[in-house]
């Protein structure tokens, strides 16, 4: 059976949340509550997002990796550059002054960390993203949208649950 999208718009987080909880309990066939349901909201609301079940975030590993790689790279680059440039001898300092190199190593520690954080955001959040079907600007303004992807047969049942929890508007994908 073909799958179709349905977007329901709510006026408050609590109504949307209760609708989602009920959907998760209902266990429709061909409807995976972990992957087929997306919430869209104008603000972030971590407590509310818990109704979707555990969704781990992995962004934080990117900067850890990036920072370590970045500072190692820069330390080797700088020390190597100095060691191959003996003409630039400074009186009173050795040709490879380690404490001094640590200062700029620290700067690149942060620079590459920041770059990798943004990379992590793009990778994990899937940005830049194409519009998913049934996009409405209301979800960035003042409504909470719940987008589900389900078998055509189950859609009316889902819709009934949404209506029960005071969904104010529905958008449906046209049938194929």
């Amino acid at each position: 059976m073909s799958k179709r999208h349905l977007l329901a718009l709510f006026d408050s987080f609590d109504e949307a949340g209760e609708a989602i909880l009920e959907l998760r309990k209902a266990k429709f066939k061909g409807f995976d509550t972990d992957h087929d349901m997306i919430i869209k909201s104008p603000i972030e609301h971590p407590e509310f997002e818990r109704v979707l079940g555990p969704k781990p975030v992995h962004v934080q590993w990117f900067p850890l990796f990036g920072s370590l790689v970045g500072c190692t790279f820069l330390f080797i680059l700088v020390s190597g550059a100095q060691a191959n440039f003996f003409e630039q001898l400074k009186g009173g300092k050795p040709i490879v002054p380690i404490p001094i190199n640590l200062v700029i190593t620290y700067a690149l520690f942060m620079l590459s960390g920041v770059f990798f954080t943004v990379l992590g955001l793009f990778v994990c959040a899937g940005l830049p993203a194409r519009r998913v079907p049934l996009y409405t600007s209301r979800v960035l303004d003042d409504q909470i949208g719940v987008l589900v992807k389900a078998d055509e047969a189950t859609l009316p049942a889902i819709k009934a649950i949404f209506t029960k929890h005071k969904a104010v508007e529905f958008q449906e994908e046209a049938g194929k």
């Binding site: 190597g80 001898l89 009173g92 300092k93 050795p94 040709i95 490879v96």
Partner: peptide
């Protein structure tokens, strides 16, 4: 290359003036 250079001549790279 530079690393090998660095390790071989390490003591030379740590010399400081005044001698």
């Amino acid at each position: 290359m530079s690393i090998a250079n660095l390790l071989q001549n390490w003591s030379r790279y740590r010399d400081t003036h005044p001698y």
